[in-house]
Design a protein around this nucleic acid. Structure first.
Lengths: 123, 123, 123, 123
DNA sequence: GTGGTCTAGACCACG
DNA sequence: GTGGTCTAGACCACT
């Protein structure tokens, strides 16, 4: 499949799945109207429980990211990318504020940005 | 007191306390050899249970951030700031990787960095 | 169950549990990948509180002895026996140093070793 | 002074003092009828609280290891060395049993005995 | 069902 | 006064 689950992380698996899907959408690898893998097949691919995937999909529906087509499956809804990006930018700002408070210099931060953006990418 | 607890956050209280203390140390508001508030008084100030604070302190001892002086209290250990900063830099890298995947441009990120570091600071 | 708790000992119960589990692993009665009893069931079997067992398990995870499978339980991690044996050898050295200081002869010590190893074994 | 206190140990300081004194007696560096340092001076030497030393002395009196001469101080009582040694031999046997259960070979144990007894001793 | 967190409150050990 | 441990019981999150 397209992303990995970290079974040792303290972050719940269903949240890892949700995040993974959001990132796939943001990065353009999943587009509006495309079908997602069935709950059953994704669960098998990731090696997790059916209910776990089901919950991730269900919550993404509630957030408006996915839509259910009964009897067919889940498709990517008509999401505004900016909305999703906003949540990432907020996260970034929070960490940056902590870095500033902690005395990490702006230069060092920009160095790190370079590392990440320069380096080969991707999840 | 010195920091706030978000009781609605999904992040456990004891972890919020750990993070808060690490940030206080990183920002220089808590220095090597200084005593932390007693478990009981911090618990009261934060409005949480004694055991919750105790767990945070205990784990910080295991991580080498604090030391126990038996019958006296907890003091800030002789920590290398770099070690603590590492934990923030890791958090930063994670968010940045997500931003990259999500298609947020490096320029936009640096713009945000500028906002945070330019603007007047601090938690 | 597999071991006994001495409620009168000055050694904390959660440490007795940790030690008991380490010894079960070292003696081969618990192997890599095997599940431990659930927190609740072990607590009931030992007649102690759930939190006490939980703490023992949690600390064993931090020491790399166990792993958590969320929603499933705790399993014995892929531990190097030597690592665990080290903790026993340290204990042995400490006692031996005291014996030496106390004027117990090396011959007497080896005699005792013979007694224990010769005699039919263990707990 | 004659022994060191490990302030980071989980073993209570007063127990470390008790053990230290017992070992001094067993090794012959403190003999029957000899005076121990006053509570006040030992506390200062060790850098611990008065009450801590007082408690150690008090318990050693209860165990028959020391005697109080009111107004003069504490002296080493008429102790049978064997009695004290017995408690060490018991401790040794316990650890050895664990070692055996854990699969540490008799050869390895004797090797360790050699290390400790061969090596320079003390403190 | 599993583990995880948290509370309220008790009691002990230490300095 | 300090920290340490433990209990009983609640509620939540995960699989």
């Amino acid at each position: 499949m397209w992303f990995r689950i970290d079974f040792h992380s303290s972050k719940p698996i269903y949240e890892q799945i949700k995040e993974g899907i959001k990132l796939l959408i943001l990065s353009g690898r999943l587009r509006e109207g495309e079908f997602l893998p069935s709950i059953r097949s994704l669960a098998e691919d990731l090696g997790v429980n059916l209910n776990t995937v089901a919950r991730a999909y269900r919550e993404l529906v509630m957030e408006g990211v996915l839509e259910v087509r009964r009897g067919e499956g889940y498709v990517v809804a008509d999401v505004r990318r900016e909305a999703l990006q906003g949540f990432l930018e907020d996260a970034l700002k929070n960490v940056l504020r902590d870095c500033k408070t902690a005395g990490i210099s702006e230069e060092r931060v920009i160095e790190i940005v370079g590392e990440v953006y320069g380096g080969e990418g991707g999840c």
